[in-house]
Simulated scan of single mutants.
Amino acid sequence: MTRSMTAFARQEAEHEWGSLSWEIRSVNHRYLEPHLRLPENLKELEGFLREKLRKTLSRGKVECTLRFHPEAQVQQLVVNQDYAKEVIQAAESLQGMMKEHQPLDALELLRWPGVMQDVKLDMDLVKNSAKSLFDKALDDLLEGRGREGVELANLINQRLDSISEIVAEVREKMPQILQNQRDNLNQRLEELKAELDEARIEQEIALIAQKADVDEEMDRLDTHVQEVRRVLKQKGPIGRRLDFLMQELNREANTLSSKSIVASTTQCAVELKVLIEQMREQIQNIE
Rank of each mutant, 00 (worst) to 15 (best):
A7H: 02
L45Y: 00
R37T: 10
L53K: 03
Q81E: 15
L53H: 04
L45R: 01
L53Y: 07
L66Y: 01
R59W: 10
N28C: 08
A84E: 01
C64Q: 02
V74T: 13
S58P: 07
R30C: 09
R37M: 06
R10H: 14
A9I: 02
L77A: 15
Y83Q: 06
F68V: 08
L38R: 04
S19V: 05
V74Q: 14
A9H: 01
V27I: 11
N41E: 15
A9V: 01
A7S: 15
E44A: 13
Q73R: 13
Q76R: 09
K55I: 06
E71C: 05
E63I: 03
C64L: 05
W17R: 00
F8V: 02
Q73L: 14
K52C: 05
M5N: 07
V62W: 01
K61V: 12
N28V: 08
H69A: 14
E23A: 09
G18V: 12
V62S: 02
E51M: 08
F68G: 10
G60A: 11
R25A: 00
Q11D: 04
E23M: 05
K55W: 05
G18F: 11
V74C: 12
E33I: 10
K52R: 10
N80R: 08
N28P: 13
V27L: 06
N28H: 08
L32T: 13
L32E: 08
Q75I: 12
Q76F: 04
L36W: 05
A84H: 01
H15R: 05
Y83V: 08
A13F: 06
S26H: 01
K43G: 13
S58N: 12
S26Y: 00
V78Y: 03
I24G: 00
S58G: 13
K52V: 09
R30Q: 12
Y83K: 07
T6D: 03
Q76G: 06
R25H: 04
H29D: 14
K55P: 04
F8E: 00
Q11M: 11
A13S: 14
E63A: 03
V27M: 06
L36M: 11
H35M: 05
A9M: 03
V78K: 09
L42Y: 04
Y83S: 07
R59T: 11
G18E: 09
D82R: 15
F48D: 07
K43M: 13
K61R: 15
L20G: 02
A72T: 15
E12C: 11
R59D: 11
Q11V: 10
E63F: 03
L49K: 01
H29S: 14
E40Y: 04
A7Q: 01
Y31H: 15
Q76P: 04
R50D: 02
A72Q: 15
S19H: 08
L66M: 03
E44K: 13
P34F: 04
Q11G: 10
Q76A: 06
L53V: 09
F8H: 02
G60Q: 00
R67S: 11
Y31T: 15
L36A: 07
H29T: 11
E16G: 12
R37F: 03
R30M: 14
P39T: 02
R50V: 07
F68R: 08
C64M: 06
P39L: 03
